[in-house]
Amino acid sequence: MRSNVKPEKMGILDGKKAAEYYKEEIAREAAEFTRRTGKKPYLVTILVGNNGASETYVASKLRNSEKVGFNASLVRFEDTVTEEALLGKIDELNASEEVDGILVQLPLPAHIEEKKVIMRISPLKDVDGFHPESLGKMLIGLPTFLPATPYGIMELLDYYKVETEGKHCVVMGRSNIVGTPISLLLSRQGNPGNCTVTITHSRTKDLETITRQADILIVAVGRPEFVTADMVTEGAVVIDVGIHRIADKNRKSGYRLVGDVKFDEVAPKCGGISPVPGGVGLMTIVGLLKNTLEAAKRRTLPS
């Protein structure tokens, strides 16, 4: 984690500002890597179907990869692609000497088993950090690729110098992609870290009582504007992982983007809060870029 940034006063945890800082750092390291090796880090993204949100995410990942000096390409499949064909393409990319990182954009069509796809990606190229080997190494503290969203959250907390040591962090959501990994990372010794962590989920009783105890509240429940002001204590830091499109006839697009937190209601109570859009999503891309650069270094540079 970097600790040489002097942020402005905490309030809005601006993912755009933090991401730009980290991307400048990544670009410098990528340029040095290319100077030493004669090659650029290379990320390949696989997109199945034409889900609007996935299209947006993938375009951003490709654009940002090129911005920091990576090679990046997109492999497209129709949503009718067979599981066998998709797995075959992953095998091909695993075997490629040129490719450093492989990312399969989720969600996938119902006829394709996501776990099977995740497990097919080589752990050496698992820049999303979803493979069981990556998660297992993270659990016991070995060097590995961290899941991109938790990685991005940790960097956001570090950028804004959010005090975590001895704080009570409540995580809402227990997925292997966000909730469980971020709970482990924040409980671990380090900075950010050394939190006392409580994980809540759909079966948690008296949820509001627990969330009001949080110094840091990380919300990844997948429900638009679920967290309201009465669930948050005064001065808490709130990290909103969710992103949803909801209908809004006053917008030209016909929708607006919101998170899992009712921002306008919760923000006035917070010591710091990440907005949606402009928060965790941008930092997830930072995590992905950092993992891709690290993958390229591990595969190319002598240890």
Rank of each mutant, 00 (worst) to 15 (best):
S3T: 15
K6I: 15
P7D: 12
D14V: 02
K17F: 04
E20Y: 10
F33G: 08
T34K: 15
R35L: 12
T37Q: 04
K39N: 09
T45C: 11
I46N: 00
G52W: 09
S54C: 15
S54Q: 10
S60M: 14
S65H: 05
R76N: 14
F77P: 02
T80I: 09
T82S: 15
A85I: 07
K89M: 14
S96E: 11
S96M: 13
E97G: 09
E97D: 14
E98S: 14
L103H: 02
Q105M: 06
L106C: 00
H111R: 05
I112K: 02
E113A: 12
R120A: 15
P132S: 07
I140P: 04
L142S: 11
F145M: 07
Y151D: 15
V162D: 06
S175W: 03
I177H: 00
V178R: 08
S183T: 12
L184T: 14
I199E: 00
T200M: 00
H201T: 00
H201P: 09
E208A: 12
T209G: 10
F226I: 06
V241D: 07
N250F: 04
R251D: 11
K252E: 14
G259L: 08
K269V: 06
G271R: 01
P275N: 11
V276D: 10
L282R: 08
V286H: 03
A295I: 10
T300C: 10
